[in-house]
């Protein structure tokens, strides 16, 4: 049974036709067995693909330490990398379902255009960051407050090559949720040390990002 209803497909097709400017390659790391959410994640991607000729898919059977896994820095699955004009460092670990589906769609648009909806002040601050920052945003698919947190992180990655950002679906990676004391979502972790609770406004997110980059 398709996940996307006819009217959703129609809406997304029009949205992509209007907004996608450059190609987006969806690099998907998966595994045939022992990965509960790999197949449903693949189904989401496969239903998106035909909605724009600017979208393409590259699937890799996940093997830790393999050439592709190393190139994209992938250590868990299912993993999605969105590659536009370049690899901006936008990652999804776990299924982008529920509320996170909207994040995936918005990210595809930004990656295609190579631009974000940051305010000019925020964009300047992000672009000025001169040290690597890795952002993990812990979410659950049933959390309506989570997509804005993931979006801010992914937008930062798109604006600055030194920033990488991942959505992490907490229930699929309980060891990580435990490691970072995640008992509520969204929870954003910068470089493993600085943290931010909840769907923070842009200014507070930038403040924490800069704190991690110092």
């Amino acid at each position: 049974m398709p996940l996307l209803k006819d009217e959703d497909q129609k809406y997304l097709r029009a949205e992509f036709a209007r907004k996608l400017t450059g190609p987006v390659k969806i690099v998907f790391f998966t595994q045939a067995q022992d990965c509960m959410f790999c197949q449903p994640t693949e189904q989401i991607i496969r239903e998106l693909l035909p909605l724009s000729d600017k979208l393409s898919l590259e699937t890799h059977a996940f093997a830790p330490g393999s050439e592709e896994a190393t190139r994209y820095g992938i250590d868990k699955i299912p993993a999605i990398v969105l590659v536009g004009a370049k690899d901006y460092g936008v990652r999804f670990y776990g299924i982008p379902a529920g509320f996170e589906f909207s994040t995936l769609v918005a990210d595809i648009i930004d990656v295609s255009r190579g631009e974000t909806s940051f305010s000019p002040e925020a964009r300047d601050k992000v672009r000025a960051i001169a040290k690597p920052v890795d952002i993990q945003v812990f979410v659950s698919p049933t959390c309506p407050y989570c997509p804005p947190a993931v979006r801010l992180a992914h937008m930062a990655a798109i604006e600055n090559g030194l920033v990488t950002a991942a959505m992490v679906e907490s229930t699929e990676f309980p060891h990580l949720a435990h490691q970072y004391n995640v008992a509520g979502v969204p929870r954003t972790i910068f470089n493993g040390t600085v943290s931010l609770e909840g769907a923070a406004p842009e200014a507070l997110f930038i403040e924490k990002l800069l704190e991690a980059a110092r």
Partner: peptide
Amino acid sequence: LGKGVSYCAVCDGAF
């Protein structure tokens, strides 16, 4: 907050 205090059961219940 986020360490056991929550205002959203569907978001955080699974923890």
